[in-house]
Amino acid sequence: MSVIVEGVSKRFGRIMALEGVSLSARRGEAVALIGPNGAGKTTLLKLMAGILLPDEGSVLVNGYPAHTPKAKERVGFMTPQDRGVYWRVSALDNLVFFGALYGMTLREARRRAREVLEAVGLWERAHDRVASFSTGMMRRLELARALMHDPDVLLLDEPTSGIDIDAKAVILKRISELGRERLVVLASHDPAEVGIATRVIHLNKTIIAESKAPKLLKVLVKGDVSALDGRFKVRPTGEGEAVVELGVDQFDEFAAVYASLRGRIKAVDMEVVVAYAAGGNARLQWRREGRRWDL
């Protein structure tokens, strides 16, 4: 099972979204697409999902053009908005509906819906209208929907955007597990999401760099950082600010501590530091320019 992108360009009117992008990925990989807003991450995911057609080049899923039903059968897709589910019917009905869309019989769809709702911790709310769900529950339902037909390839666009730490931990844990047996491609700005990747692709219209998994997160914080001492490496920079360095596997722990401090410290910026796959000891720094990071 694989996704092969070969020389793909995509333009929207006068705006070039992607230019000459080539990459291939296969089962067992969790590939994170990172880059600034407008870098083409979502466009690339949509091309892989077969809901966009490339202007040039080709996108193949398991050897089939991505826009064909043969390719789509094996792809699960999740967008970042709280849209795309029917709010006025139950979670179970939503999943059965989309299961049928993917060629499952009603019996198969109901059985599978139970499995995926249990996997994302929503089975108790299966018969409730989606309108009563929190944002985090909605995201978990959307993940369940993407998993309904047991896809080989999972395409996730900011899968934990806008949700609280607990829900984020549940979703990322599940995605991380899924990544071992499937191909997961996710577009993200979030260090916790990028942290589960086995490979990181830095995109800005074209592929700027490819690296192995991120090694280090640097979070610039303001306020009383003494509570972080002993747990994380804290390096004061003066003017009441400090840089907290942590491994990507420590992100959830950091987020929990951060939340427990209830505003005593404030994260103001962040870097994800990764090592180039090819390029010796060179390092890539990805900075979220001018954007506050609010947990």
């Binding site: 999902a49 077969g50 809901i51 789509k72 059968e73 897709f77 967008t79 795309g84 989309f98 869309l101």
Partner: peptide, 8 residues
């Protein structure tokens, strides 16, 4: 989007 992502 999800309709079009489906194999129909």
């Amino acid at each position: 989007e999800y309709y079009i992502a489906a194999p129909l």
